[in-house]
Amino acid sequence: MLRGFLGKKVGMSRVFREDGRVVPVTMIQAGPCSITQIKTNDTDGYEAVQLGFDPVKKLNRPKAGHFKGNPLTRYLREVKADDVSEFTLGQQIKVDIFEPGEMVDVIGKSKGRGFAGVMKRHGFGGGPRTHGQSDRARAPGSIGGGTTPGKVFKGLKMAGHMGNARITVKNLEVVQVDPERNLIFLKGGVPGAPNGLLLIRRTGKTASRGN
């Protein structure tokens, strides 16, 4: 069984459950993925499967050579598999490996926020807006003591670059799978902008019902 799968964020919507409850969902265009390389203990020292996703017409020669005649794809990512011997090179895999009710983790690249201040980046409260304050509304406040300790501690939350980082969101429920349109609907949000590459990782857990 494949431990992970690739997809692209499409956007968010909502879905009704039978009892009328609304579930917020992220729609992900997932797969079809092709197997582009199989790593085995003999050749690589570990077992894994490399997936190709998002077909393209042309790639430069060195990249195209890697596909050994199989359809070219924009993205290549390696995922674990329980038993690599069940896969063959060039094999196509679709979203139907997922089932509604299953829990998955999603890994993606968050939206870049540039150099962000401390309120946006760490959720600080900022300073008072009134009572004669002039430039303290978004300031971080004190960053530490004086002569003792005589330094600013490492890891202190300050302004800086935010976003554009690899983010994992854990335990999202698979709400619907549509193999015909290569779509998967997950409950909740997912990192990154629409069209961003996502890795959907299986957890082996199933959603507990009744919430």
Binding site: V10, G11, S13, V15, M27, R181, L183, P194
Partner: peptide, 8 residues
């Protein structure tokens, strides 16, 4: 794929 079209 357009988000708005999917769940029409």
């Amino acid at each position: 794929m357009e988000a708005a079209q999917i769940l029409k």
